[in-house]
Design a protein around this nucleic acid. Structure first.
Length: 633
DNA sequence: TGAGATCGCCAC
DNA sequence: AAACGTGGCGATCTCA
């Protein structure tokens, strides 16, 4: 007989087995003696599965870490449930899923207690009370039953060890790695499975009791699914051709130099710059030195930024040709220097292994809910090296980029009919410009419409975009109203929420002290600066954060559909291999590409419906399949 | 000498 | 000169 779990799911919590009670004869002695904490039971080095089913909590038999992948494979069958109806619950999916993947075991659904705890804890500090859309987003801090969430046990967010610093022993001898208890090498450990099971129940209760339980449930499921995807991307890796990357480096920089030396072409450029500016020995790597040299040569700039240098040349009038010639060497040097230091030979040595770049994401690592990345600069792979990303033979990369996500999110969140209409087509900015033209406002050009909208979402107070705000407000009162309410809450030291209920952090403890200090003109100016800055942050938070939620749902839907498979019901071999905010890259057999195209496109619309129901806002993609990442853009 | 701040540039 | 959001990162610079 199949058992029905909470919310239709069978929850199976996997975590450290508690240490057997003193005097107990059973249980192997794990390497836990040194990290046993007196305030809670230590763990035995084994994994204990615990079922959580309609409030009942049932422990199964513990297994060694080496036996865990097999257990995950067979347990659903043994319990008589469809594996896809199981929600595997971990303290930290990013860390705990990795050994399963390395053993070739994939799971369908999960719940990440650490990530969910982080979201729920911040939500519980939010004291805003209005309904969704009036106080911006979804206030979740209080529940109808008046029982706000508080963690039963702290579950730290833990990252796997960076790929590049994996100790050789763990890579060569899998036994060593698998025999590690669910404790990472930095010495953090997590609560035992019974404690984790209690925490799961507390989290599920908090969701059920919250005002916007459907949204919050979706957020926590999507966040957990994100952790699953991040772990799989780290495992799979982005195909990276070292030979092509090195050829490009050699072409623009010269051969790889000895350690501590500049590449030949960079060195020649440095010497040219010293001659051009008439400053022998000038070191362009040093901003101070370079600024002094530029000023000595009569180039009056306040910083060495490329943007400032170009500005200086452009304002030269009839002289701008000569000026451009003076600084062109510096600009070229900056470009090559950046390539060399950020994505040169060192980067290749450290981050590309066996033809793959393995991006280490930090799910929800940005306050807004965006993913961050640590190590390898995964979120900032420059255009200049993307041609080294190549599909394997017989395979293709599918690159999909969501167009103008943030203004579309704004339209859907605010329910602004005019902006939603602009967002019903492929080019939202063009549609806004057309509406602007009809209204006879200054928004009539696409470029102006774009600047105005972006400025509204970022909180611009000067320049063109600020000047266009009144026009924008007339055309899209609900949308601009939402942004301004969000900004006002921030200026008051309050919190805002995204559409699904991720809450911005509470004001810093010194908020009142700083913003309340009007004793001097200086203090007052400082208070105003701090308030406005907080307002810009909360204004952008609701949009950026909800866009991140859309992207999570998009990826979750892509993954789900890849697993379900095409028309024949066979799971796709194509895998998600890269993600940057509003763009995904998939890698798989060439013959799957047409189906993948369809899956990715449908998933984008499905994500919109998951968040907003049948809102009249489309989420169009620019999508292409190619052998090279560079060619796909 | 090392930690932390700052500069400047990359990504969305 | 900065401006208008979120980050990472490597090099230089500053200071104890």
């Amino acid at each position: 007989m199949a058992r029905i779990g909470l919310n239709g799911w069978m929850h199976i919590v996997l975590g450290p087995a508690p240490e057997p009670a003193p005097g107990s004869s059973s249980g192997p002695s794990g390497p836990s003696g040194q990290d046993r904490r007196p305030e809670r039971p230590g763990h035995s080095g084994q994994w204990l599965p615990v079922l959580v089913d309609d409030g009942r909590i049932e422990s199964l038999s513990p297994v060694t870490a080496a036996a865990l992948p097999d257990l995950v494979r067979v347990l659903p069958g043994r319990l008589g449930v469809n594996p896809e109806a199981v929600r595997w619950v971990f303290a930290s999916v990013t860390r705990d899923y990795r050994p399963l993947l390395e053993a070739g075991v994939e799971i369908g659904r999960c719940w990440d207690l650490s990530l969910c705890q982080r979201i729920l804890t911040t939500a519980a500090t939010n004291t805003s009370t209005g309904p969704a859309g009036t106080t911006v987003g979804t206030p979740t801090g209080t529940t109808p039953t008046g029982t706000p969430y508080s963690p039963t046990v702290p579950v730290p967010v833990l990252e796997p060890e960076p790929w590049a610093t994996e100790p050789p022993a763990a890579r060569v001898d899998q036994g060593t790695f698998f025999d590690l208890p669910p404790t990472n090498r930095r010495g953090h450990d997590t609560p035992t499975t019974p404690e984790l099971a209690n925490e799961l129940v507390a989290q599920l209760d908090a969701v059920s009791g919250s005002r916007h339980r459907h949204r919050l449930k979706l957020l926590l499921a999507a966040e957990s699914q994100g952790a699953l995807i991040a772990a799989e991307i780290l495992h799979e890796g982005l195909p990276w051709r070292r030979d092509l990357h090195e050829r490009m480096l050699a072409e623009v920089l010269g051969p790889r130099p000895a350690e501590g030396q500049r590449p030949r072409l960079l060195q020649e450029l440095a010497e040219d710059i010293a001659v051009t500016l008439g400053v022998p020995g000038l070191n362009p790597d040093s901003p101070q030195d370079l600024l002094r040299g530029l000023n000595l040569a009569g180039i009056r700039v306040a910083s060495t930024r490329a943007w400032d240098l170009k500005g200086w040349a452009a304002e030269g009038g009839a002289d701008s040709q000569r000026r451009a010639g003076l600084i062109s060497g510096v600009l070229e040097y900056k470009r090559l220097y950046r390539l060399w230091t950020a994505n040169g030979w060192h980067w290749l040595d450290e981050w590309v292994r066996d033809g793959r770049f393995h991006p280490a994401y930090s799910v929800g690592g940005v306050v807004t809910g965006r993913w961050a990345a640590h190590g390898g600069g995964a979120m900032q792979i420059p255009a200049a090296v993307r041609d080294a990303v190549r599909a394997d033979p017989g395979h293709l990369l599918t690159v999909a980029d969501a167009s103008q996500v943030e203004p579309r999110i704004l339209a859907a969140m605010s329910g602004d009919r005019a902006l939603a209409e602009a967002g019903s087509g492929h080019d939202l900015y063009l549609a806004v410009a057309e509406q602007g033209r009809r209204a006879g406002s200054e928004l009539g050009e696409r470029s102006r419409a774009k600047v105005a909208l972006l400025g509204a979402m970022y909180g611009a107070t000067t320049g063109d975009s600020a000047a266009l705000m009144p026009h924008l407000r007339r055309l899209f009162p609900e949308a601009i109203g939402l942004l301004e309410r969000a900004a006002r809450r921030g200026e008051e030291g309050g919190q805002v929420s995204t559409w699904l209920g991720r809450t911005s952090p509470p004001a810093a403890p010194e908020w009142l002290e700083v913003t309340g200090n009007v004793s001097t003109a200086e203090a007052e100016a400082r208070a105003r600066t701090v308030r406005r800055s907080a307002g810009r942050f909360t204004r952008n938070f609701v949009i950026q954060g909800t866009a991140a939620e859309w992207a999570l749902c998009w990826m979750g839907e892509i993954r789900r559909r890849l697993r379900v498979g095409g028309a024949d019901g066979v799971p796709m071999q194509t895998r998600l291999v890269f993600f940057v905010h509003d763009e995904v890259v998939l890698h798989g057999p060439a013959e799957e590409a047409p189906t993948v195209h369809q899956i990715v496109t449908e998933a984008a619309q499905a994500a919109g419906r998951l968040l907003f129901g049948v809102a009249p806002v489309e989420f169009p993609l620019s999508i292409s399949a190619a052998e090279s990442y560079a060619a796909a853009h």
